[in-house]
Nucleic acid binder design. Sequence first.
DNA 1: TAGGATGCTACGGAAACAGTAGCAAGGAGA
DNA 2: TCTCCTTGCTACTGTTTCCGTAGCATCCTA
Lengths: 105, 105
Amino acid sequence: MATPRKGQRVRGSRTGRPIMVLLDALGRRWALRVLWELRGAALTFRALQAACGGVSPSVLAARLRELTELRLVELGDDGYRLTDEGRSLEAVLRPLDAWATRWAR
Amino acid sequence: MATPRKGQRVRGSRTGRPIMVLLDALGRRWALRVLWELRGAALTFRALQAACGGVSPSVLAARLRELTELRLVELGDDGYRLTDEGRSLEAVLRPLDAWATRWAR
DNA sequence: TAGGATGCTACGGAAACAGTAGCAAGGAGA
DNA sequence: TCTCCTTGCTACTGTTTCCGTAGCATCCTA
């Protein structure tokens, strides 16, 4: 499947509104989880795979390709890490953890 | 596929940590979008389907079943709407819109 | 009682995902 | 140089999920 792009049509929206592009990208399997696992230090492909409970490398590679194209993730010397934009998104998503904990009660 | 449940193992996690359950649930197709479209008034099944760009009814029904079981969504007299818990989650997700707008520049 | 809207299921084909195997490149050590 | 290990990642097969259309059962209204 094609990578969702800013300003382009995505599933369920012909407008290309940024929020729709984002919801499409984050709604793919392992996308949220990858961002979540990269919230700390950089992780190699294999470390990231392990952190995600052994997700298959084909899917992980696909997600990383998409997230990289969206400039949320990049591959550095010590593995994959969030870009500055990725970090700012992660900051928005961070309250999910606390929310989920309250929710579980 | 089985509905993710609090305190139960989900894809990629044997711990059942709430955040993992949440990431699994939100990472399914149309899940985030449904929550997003229900941020305002209640919507009937068909209205929700239209709001989501014509998503197929089988998938929509599946997502609604899951979100209902997670007590994030409920079916009232005037259609589907967020529960109180669903609203509190939506409040956490709301900054995504502003983030996406900045991101698009 | 005929129409319309409702929620939702059935079904067949297409796409995404899972799981395993393994390749090519690079670095370290002998 | 020759192993040996780790790296990122692709190939392949089988399963699951999703899409798209059709249509059913129920309720409400005219």
